[in-house]
Design a protein around this nucleic acid. Structure first.
Ligand SMILES: [Mn+2]
Ligand SMILES: [Mn+2]
Ligand SMILES: [Mn+2]
Ligand SMILES: [Mn+2]
Lengths: 223, 223
DNA sequence: ATTAATTTTTAGATTAGTCTAAAAATTTAA
DNA sequence: TTAAATTTTTAGACTAATCTAAAAATTAAT
């Protein structure tokens, strides 16, 4: 019976998962230090420990990748984080910009029974309030294919299915201009210089969006 | 702005509150060590820290008492613990013997907003699944006056309003013999030697209870 | 292919929380 | 009211997680 991961270890495993584009990509010491708001020296130490515990593969100066068991742990934490976000938004009436911080704490509660009952209570949701997929009890993730709004060109259209970033300032701004998941959006015009866009939102009229914002919005790929 | 208490500090504050009969009673080093499953030497150290932070009053060799701010913190933690227990039992279908451990973790989640919304979601309950009162947002506790079943004599009767202990073995046993909160109970006979009792439960017939058990069951005082 | 810049690791400290063993104070009992 | 038992505190050490400063390795630029 391996001892349970500490809160810190869990945060490292999750960060490695989230920084890596694919589960195979190498994650650098500095990237982890940035993401975890700590120093590279600290990361070096922790990396050695996680490697010793076989949660990651590590070669000096070469960065790290999650092992099978590390990936499993990462998905468990992310599952919890996203389920709790659904609970907070759907049942406690939090806004989508208020839940990330709280979920950062709740994701570390240890009780498999709790997670599964919460999942059932919520109706086994497949996405969280930001459109991110929720891994199931076996760690399976339903990856709905999507593209960035910023990658679309004039006259293309689609349904908004997610936001890449959970920065409250971004989310509050999207609220203010009536952008939310599920809405139909149509690209009217793209400015060739700064990539800013004029878009039409369902029946809510048109608006201008900077590239900073369009690069955070995910649109369903109509297959 | 005082820094938030650590998880460990919170557990000490809560234990001091729970061991003391009244908020004024002195709590000994050994009692804390027992309750927190740690060593007296460790308690001595922590006590100094809490005293420095003015959460407790402490005189060497004389035990500790909660200060005003310490008491406030204790009530906040207990409020959270009990609200989460209500959530687990009423909404996630946990049994009353399964929730204590999980609530021990959840009680440390830091977000006043979360606690208050949870309270509303639950319908502002005043007692938890074990009959313990839930402090309100201002730390006010509604103390329903009760006495121990073991203190009652032949032919006395009343309503079961709580259990003193959350040991899963006790709670599971009470389940098995159909004892639960809200039931009418009548003392038929008390054995003078071992204080064991024959009691009649609502319309569920009679049963024998040892003093070990009767001393854990709380009955409403009919004023 | 050297040199310069950047990244990563090591070395040495620090803090929170814990422990064991021993000393000191208090309480209980003779 | 001494002596014995118990409780509590101190002393010294350990682990996890962190830091700063310096050394080593890698990568980028002349
Ligand atoms: Mn989040
Ligand atoms: Mn999310
Ligand atoms: Mn409890
Ligand atoms: Mn309870």
């Amino acid at each position: 019976m391996e001892k349970a991961l500490s809160l810190t270890e869990e945060n490292y495993i999750k960060a490695i998962f989230q920084i890596g584009t694919t589960p195979e990509s190498n994650v650098s010491t500095n990237a982890l230090a940035d993401s975890l708001q700590t120093k590279p020296a600290t990361v070096s130490d922790m990396i050695k420990k996680l490697s010793y515990k076989k949660l990651i593969f590590y070669e000096k100066y070469k960065g790290v990748t999650l092992s099978e068991s590390g990936l499993k742990e990462a998905l468990k934490i992310i599952r919890k984080h996203r389920l709790w976000e659904v609970f907070l938004v759907n049942h406690l009436n939090f806004k989508w910009d208020q839940v990330h911080e709280i979920a950062e704490q709740l994701e570390h509660i240890k009780s498999p029974e709790l997670v599964n009952r919460l999942d059932d209570f919520l109706g086994n949701p497949t996405i969280d309030p930001h459109g991110d997929p929720i891994p199931d009890a076996n760690g399976q993730v339903q990856l709905g294919s999507s593209k960035l709004l910023s990658e679309m060109t004039s006259h293309e259209n689609g349904i908004i299915v997610g936001v890449k970033n959970e920065d409250p300032l971004l989310l509050q701004h999207l609220d203010k201009i009536n952008i939310r998941l599920g809405l139909y959006i149509e690209v009217k015009e793209v400015n060739g210089f700064d990539q800013s866009m004029q878009v039409k939102l369902a029946d809510l009229g048109t608006l201008f969006l900077s590239e900073k914002i369009t690069s955070q919005i995910l649109i369903a790929k109509n297959l």
